[in-house]
């Protein structure tokens, strides 16, 4: 994900984040960013830059300025509480061998 805190002059084409679906049935995955004047050009350039070797069957482009991200400073507050909740995982539960495929 790109940081938008640049002091780019206004003549620079806007920044877009590119998401590629590598094959039918899979999620779109973030793969990079690029500059383009408008959505159509962003799709065209994403195709040229990120799928030259059949890496994708579909692309999304999103203006980078539209992405809302969690604050790295709040990482501990947001994600650490899950650390001690092992009972959320199936492996937490010990079952007899005969039903352990459950």
């Amino acid at each position: 994900m790109s940081d938008n805190k640049t002091n780019a002059p206004s003549a620079e084409w806007p920044l877009w984040e590119v998401f590629v679906r590598s094959k039918a049935g899979l999620d779109h995955k973030h793969c990079g960013s690029l500059h383009a004047a408008d959505p159509k050009m962003a799709i065209q350039l994403a195709r040229d830059v990120y799928t030259r070797r059949q890496e994708g069957v579909s692309v999304w482009v999103v203006p980078s300025s539209q992405i809302v991200a969690s604050d790295p400073g709040e990482k501990a507050m947001l994600f650490d509480p899950m650390e001690d909740k092992v009972y959320r995982h199936p492996s937490f539960y010990q079952l007899p061998e005969s039903v352990n495929h459950m």
């Binding site: 790109s2 780019a8 002059p9 620079e12 920044l15 960013s33 830059v49 030259r52």
Partner: peptide
């Protein structure tokens, strides 16, 4: 042609990576 196009693409990946550090493409 494919190789030279790749080099252009490599330049783009890298400029994008540098831009995350707060410098602009134009700079």
């Amino acid at each position: 042609l494919a190789k030279v196009q790749d080099e252009g693409g490599h330049g783009l990946y890298l400029y994008s990576a540098a831009e995350t550090l707060g410098t602009s493409r134009d700079q």
